[in-house]
């Protein structure tokens, strides 16, 4: 009596299924683009958050603090669902029409807005890590806050900011996998689909894993090259 047909565990037949391979590749591009735009959104909004926290009035600082604490204190999955369901719900309640927001866009926003909180803290901490005396010296020469930041503080802060920022982007790239739960067609989504089509969980997941690894490992290498370059200056 055969309880387990071992041969099924390494059934690589779907490698020859052209559709599955094409799907995984298109999923990979989706993952890469979500990560890329997520990073862009993260940087832009993160910098705005950092500036808000550093120079904003009490109200702005309060809003930024609440936002950062909320994002860092709740799961990304929850934030993703909130962004996916809540605006659509409100839109439907108010206008009666349904909101056709693509899950690709929702996923990108969720990842980007989540990352922004971390990027904001990275920038703020990096700027605060520069000795207060540097600001004072710049001010005493007649530089305003903005110019001091640009000419004196940021060139020094960037050494502390870059490594942390690189790590954040690596984490973000991996976390994009979560957007498959709202149906965005990324690498994770297609690997699950291939599993369902072929009844074989092993090869699609393993192949997706290899693709994720190649992307993340290249990013890690790229980040450490940039880091070394800045550390030498």
């Amino acid at each position: 009596m055969i309880l387990l047909d071992i041969s099924k565990l390494y059934d690589f037949s779907f490698f020859f299924n052209q559709q599955v391979i094409l799907d995984l590749i298109s999923g990979l591009f989706c993952t890469l683009s979500i990560a890329f735009f997520g990073i862009i959104i993260g940087i832009i909004i993160g910098i705005i958050l950092a500036i808000g926290k550093l120079v904003g009035n009490k109200f702005v600082r309060g809003v930024v603090t609440v936002y950062i604490n909320f994002v860092r204190g709740t799961p990304l999955l929850l934030q993703l669902y909130m962004l996916y369901y809540v605006p659509a719900f409100i839109w439907h309640e108010m206008s009666g029409a349904s909101l056709n927001w693509s899950n690709y866009i929702v996923g990108m926003l969720a990842v980007g807005l989540n990352s922004a909180a971390y990027v904001g803290e990275i920038f703020r901490a990096g700027i605060n890590s520069v000795d207060k005396g540097q600001f004072e010296a710049a001010s005493s020469l007649g530089f305003d806050y903005k110019t001091s930041l640009k000419l004196i503080i940021m060139p020094q802060a960037i050494k502390n900011i870059l490594p942390a920022l690189g790590n954040e982007f690596i984490a973000l790239t991996k976390e994009t996998a979560i957007i498959s739960v709202i149906g965005a067609r990324d690498l994770m989504f297609y690997s699950k689909q291939a599993t369902a089509i072929t009844y074989n969980p092993f090869t699609p997941l393993f192949m997706a894993g290899i693709l994720y690894f190649i992307v993340v490992y290249s990013l890690t290498k790229g980040v450490s090259i940039i880091e070394r370059k800045f550390a030498n200056d």
Partner: peptide, 10 residues
């Protein structure tokens, strides 16, 4: 101008 105890050169 100001000269600081800790120099604060850039």
């Amino acid at each position: 101008s100001m000269v600081f105890q800790q120099f604060n050169l850039f």
